[in-house]
């Protein structure tokens, strides 16, 4: 009965499944972002391989990590540049 009244007068709340979906989406982004150090190491090596084609970087100073923010998750890489190569490949 309350349902019908709710429909007639228009619900002021979103259906709770929408709330569930949004909360799940966020929680899974965080859950799936908990990756192993080996996985991060793999990404780091590949990033270094790509970047060194364009510039000389301090490979010991490279840091790759996953940052969890409140509503999103980011892959953050810090790559100290030692020297730019003169002839950057034409795009």
């Amino acid at each position: 009965m309350l349902d019908i009244l709710g429909k007639v007068f228009g619900r002021d709340e979103a259906p709770s499944k929408e709330i569930a979906k949004e909360r799940l989406r966020l929680v899974l982004v965080h859950d799936r972002a908990t990756v192993s150090p080996q996985f991060l190491e793999l990404i780091k090596e590949e990033v270094i391989a790509v970047i060194t084609e364009y510039m000389e970087i301090d490979t010991d100073g490279v840091e790759v990590s996953i940052h969890s923010l409140e509503r999103s998750v980011a892959l953050v890489a810090s790559l100290p540049i030692k020297r730019m190569k003169r002839a950057v490949k034409a795009v």
Binding site: P15, S16, K17, E18, K21, R25
Partner: peptide, 15 residues
């Protein structure tokens, strides 16, 4: 599901 208070099959498969 009908009244929107439970995730339906598509919602779950999608996630």
């Amino acid at each position: 599901v009908k009244r929107g208070d439970m995730m339906d099959i598509d919602d779950i498969i999608d996630i």
